[in-house]
Design a protein around this nucleic acid. Structure first.
Lengths: 162, 162
DNA sequence: GACATAGATACGAACTGGACGCAAGAACAC
DNA sequence: GTGTTCTTGCGTCCAGTTCGTATCTATGTC
């Protein structure tokens, strides 16, 4: 989904902006001695598209719509590489696989333990906690890497589980 | 560690208190149609001892010092059962396996992404965030289940990784 | 364009943490 | 002691991720 499957008109509207960003990252890779491969280009294109955070497996599916031979382990290795480059970050939204998104989208997550619904919260939302942790424990909180778990409004209505 | 290996004098000082608590939980199990088995008694004894949060594997090692035949999958099943009973809870302190501790110890965790050092923070520490999440997102945060990640004082000195 | 070469890839196997099915064993009520 | 039912040990399986390796390919140089 989200990838052009039919009627693809390359270079039209928003796509060209993404393409530019993709090439920019590929240039950065080259500067570091890396190479601009098809799998990396397609993966980056998928990442620069709008959409929810996706797992490595979901990204693999999107990539394979365009380049069917790209292996899941290649996705993992490329995500690693892009993370080392500071282009993407991964986040753990509760149990289950990690999700990946662009590093430019800095926010934390509130995830319901019962229905897995995820709410994005801006970093400012965590400012007070970050401040308190810094003062009290000399600890610098990064609210982006792991989600804060709890109960969403809908699941709060449900009876307690214990 | 922590389990009496030599010079064990059952019923002395703190141990007897733990033993009482262990039997109390076993009674609760029986009331629910469950059974008081050796593996459960030994596991509970380990859990009621002081010490850091332990993974299922670490608990298995402790249990096997006393009852060598207890299988890891039995540990998992018993921890599940005890969690259903509300006696223990598990928490995820970053990457890696879950850790288990008594449900009576209610606190959150600040865990360093770099050295895995864990700081326990009382639930009150998260009160403001919980309040804000409730008001802004109608979301009830449970700060105990997943740790809040970041950098401890020592690792804050280190150069950035990106 | 051909070539060399280091970096990247596909594939599969391995690994970790955990869940599950099942036959044998054990706790408990009678 | 007996029967019933719960629990266990063991093996197997699973998901998510990482690793080893032979092969391929992007890129700089000629």
């Amino acid at each position: 989904m989200g990838l052009p499957t039919d009627g693809a008109t390359p270079g039209v509207d928003g796509d060209s902006v993404n393409a530019e960003q993709v090439e920019e990252v590929l240039d950065r890779l080259r500067e570091g001695g890396g190479r601009a491969t098809t799998s990396r280009r397609v993966l980056l294109t998928a990442l620069f598209e709008e959409g929810p955070h996706r797992t490595a497996e979901e990204l693999a599916v999107e990539v394979q719509l365009v380049a069917p031979d790209v292996h899941l382990s290649t996705i993992y290795r490329n995500l690693d590489e892009l993370e080392r480059l500071g282009v993407v970050v991964h986040a753990h939204l509760g149990h289950g696989p990690a999700t990946y998104h662009l590093a430019s989208e800095t926010h934390g997550h509130l995830v319901c333990e019962f229905c897995d619904a995820a709410v994005e919260a801006p970093e400012e939302f965590f400012a007070e906690l970050m401040d308190a942790a810094s003062k009290k424990y000399n600890f610098a909180i990064d609210p982006r890497h792991f989600a804060v778990l709890g109960r969403c409004a809908a699941c709060a209505q449900l009876p307690a589980t214990n």
